[in-house]
């Protein structure tokens, strides 16, 4: 049941809507949705500031939502709760989330832009398929879906004054750059 390109775009738009929600809430704008049999089963966004917990990334929020719903995780259906589930996320999952997704047996990850500081699906290290694991199978992670939107929303977050930073820098002279070159 492979989704076609149009469906990928449709689902990434849903993930992007979650990123917009994060931005509106003053969070680093990352959003995601989990799709099973062409149906969205969970959507979430980054809540690290709200929950005072740097580990509450969008992916882990959504996974908890799925695991809290017995209808989505029928007991005994599979060793891996996400074996038939695809993740759409605006930014490449970080090393923590990439490992979590492998432990959950995710089928596939489609993401927007890559993350060369924390990326766990190739950005820094390939936790998804390059690192060996004694039991969890590797999964495919493909970037580039709605990549420009994903980059732009991050830029929109970073051009705004960040009053939470230890020593806020004046960003009055900062301009939002909109030009994006191919990767």
């Amino acid at each position: 049941m492979a989704a076609n390109t149009g469906e990928h775009e449709k689902f990434m738009a849903e993930a992007m809507a979650m990123a917009e929600e994060a931005l509106a809430a003053g969070e680093v704008p990352v959003g995601c949705i989990f799709v099973r049999e062409n149906t969205i089963i969970a959507k979430a966004r980054n809540r690290t500031n709200e929950l005072r917990n740097a580990t509450r990334h969008a992916e882990l929020e959504a996974i908890d939502e799925i695991m809290a719903d017995p209808a989505l995780t029928p007991p005994g259906s599979s060793g891996y709760p996400l074996a038939d589930t695809t993740l759409y996320v605006t930014v490449e999952p970080c090393i923590m989330c990439a490992s979590a997704l492998r432990q959950m047996g995710i089928k596939q990850v489609l993401y927007g832009c890559s993350n060369d500081r924390f990326g766990g699906c190739g950005g820094v290290i390939g936790i998804n398929d390059r690192l060996a694991h004694p039991s969890h199978p590797p999964y495919e992670a493909i970037g580039g879906y709605s990549r420009e939107d994903a980059i732009l929303i991050l830029r929109r977050f970073y051009v705004t004054e960040n009053s939470n930073a230890p020593t806020p820098k004046s960003k009055v002279n900062r301009v939002l750059k909109t030009e994006i070159l191919p990767p």
Binding site: V28, N49, N53, H57, V91, F118, L154, P166, R174, K177
Partner: peptide
């Protein structure tokens, strides 16, 4: 302070690169 960014990141944000994500919810 709830750090959503660290001083070292700021400069990169000025570049044309993809904004860094070390800020992803650091508390």
């Amino acid at each position: 302070p709830i750090h959503t960014s660290t001083p070292g990141d700021e400069e990169e944000n000025d570049s044309d690169s993809v904004p860094p994500l070390n800020a992803n919810g650091t508390n």
